[in-house]
């Protein structure tokens, strides 16, 4: 297990840090011998005009995605936890979006949100709303990618929270019913507190996965127009691979900033977990 961890995580992590500390050109990437540059790449990023907007978009994108994914996922989990005809099959169908490669699901979304011939604008037109330039206006592009990302994240939240619900003993609910608690009270007094460890891990993992999301944004808007949907993850990708001339160093540096952000939240999580165990 330790060896596995080291070979498959420590080595790439080490590579990423190493990349960010050197001035790589395409030549030194292939031939070796990139000069050590210390924190130059980090300085370059911090002073880049993209930094501010990218930070803001990362926070908004992550916060909004998490809030909606989790709430909708929780509501659906509670709903499907009441057994009714077809509940199992329908719940399994909710996972179908996860079976699709991201290139397909993201392309489908950009198809539906197309300003000219998209089905969403066509539907808005039917109810008399002016067409919205979902992907091509700086005001809407971030909203659009958040919608698509929430859609992709719902199955994950649903499944993990649902299996958490199954771990709550039914006797607790029976006792509460005897006390005359309403459905809403049962949720807040039993379901929510009992789900706390699972919710915490779901949110944490959700946070990490959302910080990392780049394919969806990249395919739908390329982070544009004019950086209006650029997050750290897409910025990192754009620097490293989005151009004919890759800038690996700054790309890796942005990636490491993301890791630091996750690190902070990870620390908070572990502190809370400790307190619960103690």
């Amino acid at each position: 297990m330790t060896l596995y961890l080291l070979a498959f995580y420590a080595y790439p992590l080490y590579r990423n840090i190493e990349l960010s500390l050197r001035t790589y050109t395409v030549r030194s990437f292939v031939q070796g011998g990139a000069p050590f540059a210390g924190l130059d790449n980090y300085g370059k990023i911090l002073s880049d005009p993209t930094f501010g907007p990218a930070l803001l978009h990362t926070v908004v994108f992550t916060g909004a995605s998490l809030a909606f994914q989790f709430t909708i996922g929780m509501a659906l989990a509670v709903f499907f936890h009441q057994h009714f005809p077809l509940s199992g099959t329908l719940r399994a169908l909710f996972l179908v979006p996860w079976l699709l490669p991201l290139i397909v699901s993201a392309s489908t979304w950009s198809w539906m949100l197309n300003s000219e011939a998209g089905v969403v604008n066509a539907a808005l037109g039917v109810v008399g709303v002016e067409p919205v330039n979902w992907l091509t206006s700086p005001q809407w592009s971030l909203v659009s990618v958040i919608i698509a990302n929430v859609w992709i994240g719902i199955p994950f939240n649903l499944v993990v929270l649902y299996s958490g619900l199954q771990g709550i003993p039914g006797t607790l609910y029976e006792a509460a019913s005897l006390d005359g608690a309403t459905g809403w009270q049962r949720f807040w007094r039993i379901t929510f507190p009992m789900l706390r460890p699972v919710s915490a891990i779901t949110l944490l993992l959700g946070l990490i996965y959302t910080l990392k999301v780049f394919d969806i944004i990249w395919i739908m808007t390329r982070g544009g127009p004019t950086d209006s949907s650029t997050t750290f993850a897409t910025w990192s990708y754009r620097l490293g691979f989005g151009n004919l001339l890759p800038a690996f160093g700054p790309g890796a540096a942005v990636g490491n900033l993301l890791i630091v952000m996750a690190l902070i939240f990870g620390l908070i999580y572990i502190r809370i977990q400790r307190r619960q165990q103690a």
């Binding site: 091509t136 700086p138 544009g224 127009p225 004019t226 209006s228 151009n243 004919l244 001339l245």
Partner: peptide
């Protein structure tokens, strides 16, 4: 060329989307 092309397409996007 790549270092010129990227600012060029960025400018095109900025102008067409009306932000500049």
């Amino acid at each position: 060329y790549p270092k010129i092309s990227e600012p060029l397409w960025t400018a095109t996007q900025a102008a067409l989307s009306g932000s500049k």
